Simulated assay, not measured.
Amino acid sequence: MSVPDKYDAHAGALSADSKKNYEKLLNDYTSSLPSYWKFEIVPNFFKQSDEATDPLSFNYLKEDFGRVLSWEETFSKLSELNSNASEDESYKVFFLARHGQGYHNLANSVYGQKEWDRKWSKLNGDGKMVWGPDPELTDLGVSQAVDNNHVWKEQIKKGCKLPTKWFSSPFTRSVDTLIHTWKDIIDLQKEKPLIKEDFRETMGVHTCDKRSTRSFIASKYEPKGFVIEDGFAEEDIYFKDDYRETIEEQSIRLNRSFQFIFDNYDDEVINVTSHSGSIRSQLLVLNHRPFAIGTGGMIPVFVKATKVKN
């Protein structure tokens, strides 16, 4: 994994207008619910939440994932906070992972962001490589996931707790990254990672962000231990050729994902493997500062959730 490049910085950028628009949509969304979780970051546990940390030069692989305290202190504090929390409070540490380089990422770097957005992202390939729909990892993308596997093994020796629940976007590049990252560390058949639609990348226009059918995903990944969430449609009913989801629209569905997690899981340490745009929205939802993530990269976040009743 390298530090984020200019394309990763572009994908992770967030404007003030996007944040304001998200807050308006969030108010409409939450006001219709009997209760909901409000999220915030607990500071001073990971360097990535510190404004002084530069996303474009920070390499979590060489920084013990960015931890400020020892792993023992970090997880001891996590357990202590949950032990003393009211019934309307919950604390979790999320490891938010981005898939390794896919062929669409390679094409983006070959043609440049302007030409990618204007022309190439709307096509399935260029005659030399295929990036849509649902592109595969490149060899570099696989090696980035393997790098994470090696570093996870090092951090476990240093006291890092393993996640106890795993989620993935339904895209091939995301699920394969999860597989290569956790090989020989967990038993997928036992842990049964959940493939969840809402963790997918920004929807629409870009062919790389159109997913495979449910049948294809099931045939490829259910034998390996993955579970597809209930209600998962056979065809990609959300992808539109002529409309690309806004950041704030994507963030509402990511908020829905975290509402689901905090409503249904007591697990304190959770892994989510998804995409740059998805992570951008996840960080917005969790009230974390924007932070660019390179292909194959990962960011840990220490989250406090407070139940609000309408």
Rank of each mutant, 00 (worst) to 15 (best):
L178K: 06
G294M: 00
N149I: 02
K153V: 03
G297E: 06
D117R: 03
D50C: 08
V272E: 10
T246Q: 04
F262Y: 06
G159V: 05
D266L: 03
S274L: 09
K309F: 05
F75D: 14
I293C: 04
K196G: 13
L286G: 10
E154M: 07
D50Q: 07
S143D: 15
S18Q: 15
L96A: 13
A305E: 12
V272A: 08
E154H: 04
Q259M: 09
A52T: 14
R280C: 05
K153F: 00
G100K: 01
K158P: 13
R98E: 11
N21K: 13
E72W: 02
T207I: 00
G294K: 01
E201I: 01
E63T: 13
K62A: 15
E40P: 07
K24Y: 04
N27M: 07
S219K: 14
T213A: 03
Q250G: 14
Y265S: 12
L61E: 09
T295R: 01
V269D: 05
K6E: 15
L61S: 12
M298N: 08
K157H: 03
K19E: 15
D209F: 01
E23W: 02
T295P: 12
Y111F: 13
K128E: 15
Y7Q: 10
W71Q: 10
K158R: 08
S35R: 07
F75E: 11
F216D: 15
K210N: 03
G294C: 01
Y91N: 11
G294E: 08
A218E: 15
E191G: 01
G297Y: 05
V308W: 04
N84M: 07
K20F: 02
I299E: 06
G277M: 11
Q144C: 07
D236H: 05
Y91I: 12
P170E: 08
T181W: 00
K77L: 11
G296E: 06
K6L: 05
V93Q: 03
R256A: 08
P133T: 05
D50S: 11
E249S: 04
K47H: 03
K309D: 11
N21L: 14
H10P: 06
W120R: 08
I195C: 10
V272P: 12
D187T: 12
N310C: 07
T207Q: 12
N264H: 07
M203E: 04
G296H: 03
K309A: 01
A16S: 14
Y103N: 13
K304R: 13
D88I: 01
Q259S: 08
L106H: 09
P43S: 01
D209L: 06
K240V: 03
K158T: 10
V68I: 15
S143L: 06
K24I: 10
W152I: 15
K114T: 03
A52Q: 15
V175E: 11
K128Y: 08
K153T: 01
R289Y: 02
M1D: 09
G125F: 06
Y103Q: 14
L140P: 02
S278P: 12
G231H: 03
A11T: 01
L137C: 14
N108K: 10
I185S: 12
G66W: 01
W152L: 14
A305D: 05
D8M: 05
P170T: 02
